[in-house]
């Protein structure tokens, strides 16, 4: 294990996902530490700026191409990926822990007889063995695991592995055209959630809870999010009340997020909510109850009324 790395690059609408760039950088650092080979592969129709991954440390990328592959097809993508991994004899295969990554890592693990570890928050060689850490029980515990098979597949949690320095090196792009596809499973259309940033991928999230009192008051949450270039999130209480869509729910039965900054407004900090956001790098809480559990995980807090603090915060940030 650890002799030949392969990174899967996820594209949506022809653009490389940021979470894949994180995986490329992490993969290239790991490979460099072992003097091992690494290459990348992507699947799609048009994929823009592929050569730029050179700047993240990988010098060769194969673009498996067919015009029918612009949308995801788990049957086609997994077949193509399995044969590519076998062809180059990859033994350590990395994905981002996204909906697509979690659909592709398992078939690869099964058909390559590889170990699979999902949702890694760290991945490093210890005593020559690749060791992963991942949260379990909604982040209430962390396990450190190792695969003892010759091949292994890992998915890395988005927003955890930092990209750091990049260069303007260019990668060699090899196009591999494919004629026949297994489209037993086919995405016929993709609908975007109102063109908004998704909580799972955002650097900054502004979340509102029941303390916001009513659906219409979320205008303030949205305005603050706009100013910060943030995604809007929600507690389950407000999703259940129908004030916000389920796609915004953060927590154990919603999304797990680890943005750089998480601002919780009128959210008490129930254990199930904390489960989804406590690995955020910075947490700000605005809650009028100074004993609310959210303050136990917050880096900064204002123990005050959201209806006074939010407008002031919006004004202050608009000054810039």
């Amino acid at each position: 294990m650890g002799n030949k790395f392969l990174v899967f690059i996820e594209q949506r609408d022809g653009e490389i996902k940021k979470s894949s760039l994180e995986v490329i950088k992490k993969g290239s650092d790991l490979a460099a530490s072992q003097n091992a080979d690494i290459e990348a592969v992507t699947i799609g129709d048009v994929v823009n700026n592929l050569e730029n991954i050179g700047g993240y440390g990988i010098s060769k990328v194969t673009h498996i191409h067919n015009s029918e592959l612009s949308n995801f097809s788990v049957s086609a993508y997994s077949e193509l990926l399995i044969s590519f991994a076998l062809e180059i004899n990859a033994d350590t295969i990395l994905f981002a822990n996204t909906a697509m990554g979690k659909d592709l890592a398992p078939p690869l693990a099964v058909k390559l007889n590889a170990g699979v570890v999902v949702d890694c928050i760290s991945l490093d060689f210890k005593d020559g063995k690749l060791t992963a850490a991942r949260p379990v029980y909604a982040g209430k515990a962390i396990v450190e695991v190792e695969s003892n098979l010759d091949k292994s597949v890992y998915t890395l949690r988005p927003n955890v592995f930092t990209i750091g320095e990049t260069s303007d090196a260019k990668a060699e792009v090899v196009i591999k055209n494919i004629d026949t596809l297994n489209l037993a499973n086919k995405v016929v259309s993709v609908s975007k959630a109102e063109g908004k940033l998704d909580v799972a991928e955002a650097d900054i999230i502004v979340s509102g809870g029941r303390g916001m009192k009513a659906a219409e008051n979320f205008g303030m949450i949205e305005e603050l999010a706009d100013i910060l270039g943030a995604a809007t999130g929600a507690s389950r209480a407000v999703v259940d009340a129908g004030w916000r869509p389920h796609s915004e729910q953060v927590g154990q039965t919603g999304k797990t997020v680890s943005p750089n900054l998480y601002i919780a407004v009128g959210i008490s900090g129930a254990i199930q909510h904390l489960a989804g956001m406590q690995s955020s790098k910075y947490i700000v809480a605005i809650n009028k109850d100074k004993d609310a559990p959210i303050f136990q995980v917050a880096d900064y807090g204002i123990a005050g009324d959201a209806f006074e603090v939010l407008p002031a915060l919006i004004e202050e940030l608009k000054k810039d």
């Binding site: 949308n71 909906a99 086919k186 016929v188 993709v190 609908s191 975007k192």
Partner: peptide, 14 residues
């Protein structure tokens, strides 16, 4: 339909 980051995919399979 399945949920993905930032949206949904409509799927046909058998």
């Amino acid at each position: 339909e399945r949920e993905i980051e930032g949206g949904k995919e409509s799927i046909e399979t058998s």
